[in-house]
Design a protein around this nucleic acid. Structure first.
Lengths: 104, 104
DNA sequence: ATTATATATCGAGATTTCGCGATAAGTCAA
DNA sequence: TTGACTTATCGCGAAATCTCGATATATAAT
């Protein structure tokens, strides 16, 4: 959650792209949630496999990138069954952007 | 001038501190410009030596950090005599902050 | 010209990051 | 239970970053 860790997470072309793709998941990924039951609400989440395919990097690399971005606070995740869905942590990102605007 | 380079420049504690110190030079550094003639206008600039002392790193490290931040667009420099003064590139920083706010 | 001062550049060792393949762990279906 | 599938973790070599001391360059003073 340190500022430096956020900047580090953003210092990579692929990770930055993933963050952008997740702004419009329906535009960049196949329809999600086929395996999520109706009760669960995790709109905008995309499973690791689809993100990996789009990124064109290995599964392990993408998994750790996503984990890193989550630790930094930029993403949040939800696991259903064997799938893990990631989406943007929008309030956190907005807060970070605002902090940059006022304190950088 | 690429976004990634800006994030990389901001991904280091010392460099981030330098950027903050330069927001209020008079608060963090000795009075500057003793060697600058009246005609020159470079308000807010601080010479490398004073930044180095404050940072507590080697002269070479600080010099290259400052150069890196300038290349990224965050700082601008002015050389007078044997001194090089650095200051924040405020318009660029504001523009970057705005870009983060709207595009991140 | 010589010397002193401020900054930039170079070369190097230590640490970190990048991205991979292999493997482990968790979950589901049969 | 076995097998298939999705994701996470581990270990690794390559590349980048960190930070330093030594040295080069530029300017100023004597």
């Amino acid at each position: 959650m340190k500022t430096i860790d956020i900047f580090k997470a953003l210092s990579n072309e692929t990770r930055l792209s993933m963050l952008h793709w997740l702004k419009e998941p329906e535009k960049h990924f196949p329809a999600q949630g086929a395996h999520i039951p109706k009760g669960i609400n995790f709109v905008g989440g995309v499973c690791v496999g689809d993100i990996q395919e789009k990124a064109g990097l290995s599964q392990s690399t993408v998994s750790s990138y996503l984990n890193m971005m989550q630790k930094a606070g930029l993403l949040e995740s939800f696991r259903y069954g064997q799938w893990t869905y990631y989406r943007r942590n929008e309030p956190f990102i907005r807060e970070f952007a605002e902090q940059i605007r006022t304190e950088l």
